Structures are given as structure tokens and as C-alpha cells.
Measured scan of single mutants.
Amino acid sequence: QAPETKIVDKSRVACDGGEGALGHPRVWLQIPEDTGWVECPYCDCKYVLKGSKADAL
């Protein structure tokens, strides 16, 4: 199944896999201003900063 994409309001987000005990260790991710998105290294969930150029795609 394809990784999930989430639109977020802040450039710093936490990801834990979203499945409680079945998820992964919580990691904090920083969305770079130049790209407007970041992917979780564990679950490949893509976080897109709302209003960024990546959000316009």
C-alpha cells in the first residue's frame, strides 16, 4: 500500500507510525523551507507543509 500523505500546519512534526504499539519509535521531523515536505525514515509517511510550494502540487 502507498505511504500516507499528511498536510500539516507546522514545519516540525512528530511521527510514531500512528498505530500505537504497532507503530515505530517517535521521531521529530523538520520540514525544509526549500522543499516544503519531509518523509518519515521509518514508515515513509510524507508530511507536506500547508501553503508551501509542495502543497500546491
Rank of each mutant, 00 (worst) to 15 (best):
K10P: 05
A54Q: 05
D44K: 15
P25N: 07
Q1F: 13
H24Q: 04
W37Y: 13
A56P: 14
V38L: 04
E4I: 14
A14E: 12
H24G: 03
C15K: 00
E19H: 06
W37N: 04
D44Y: 15
D16V: 11
W28D: 01
V27G: 02
A56H: 14
R26S: 04
S52A: 03
A21M: 12
K53M: 10
L29R: 00
T35G: 04
L57A: 14
L29A: 02
Y42V: 13
L57M: 11
D44H: 15
L49C: 08
T35Q: 09
D55G: 00
R12A: 11
G20L: 02
P3K: 15
K6F: 13
A14N: 04
A54R: 00
L22Q: 11
P25M: 09
P41L: 03
Q1V: 13
L22C: 01
R12V: 14
A14G: 07
Q30M: 12
L57V: 10
G36F: 03
C40F: 09
G17W: 02
G23W: 14
G20M: 04
V8Q: 02
V48M: 04
P3D: 10
Y42F: 12
P41A: 04
E19P: 14
L49V: 05
A56F: 13
L22D: 11
C43N: 00
D44A: 15
T35I: 13
C15F: 00
C45P: 01
G17T: 01
V8M: 00
C15E: 00
G17Y: 01
I7E: 08
S52D: 09
V13H: 02
Q1T: 13
I31Y: 02
G18S: 06
V8W: 04
V8K: 03
Q30H: 10
G17H: 02
P41K: 02
K6W: 10
C43L: 01
V48T: 01
E19D: 10
D44W: 14
A21F: 09
V48N: 02
D16H: 07
W28G: 02
W28Q: 02
C40N: 06
V13D: 03
G20H: 07
T5G: 07
L57P: 11
E39K: 15
S11Q: 10
K6D: 06
E19W: 06
C15G: 00
A2F: 11
A54P: 05
A56G: 11
Y42C: 09
E33L: 13
C40Q: 05
L57F: 14
A2R: 14
G23Q: 13
I31E: 02
D44F: 15
K50F: 04
A14P: 13
W37Q: 05
Q1D: 11
E33T: 08
A21D: 12
A14M: 09
C45G: 15
P41H: 04
G23T: 10
D34Y: 05
E39A: 12
R26E: 07
P25V: 10
D34P: 03
V48Y: 05
I31K: 01
A14L: 10
G36W: 03
D34R: 06
S52Q: 03
D16I: 08
Q30G: 01
T5Y: 15
K6Y: 13
A21W: 05
S52N: 04
I31S: 02
G51K: 00
Q30Y: 13
L22F: 11
A54T: 05
S11M: 10
I7D: 07
P41G: 04
P25W: 08
C43I: 01
R12I: 14
V38A: 02
K6I: 14
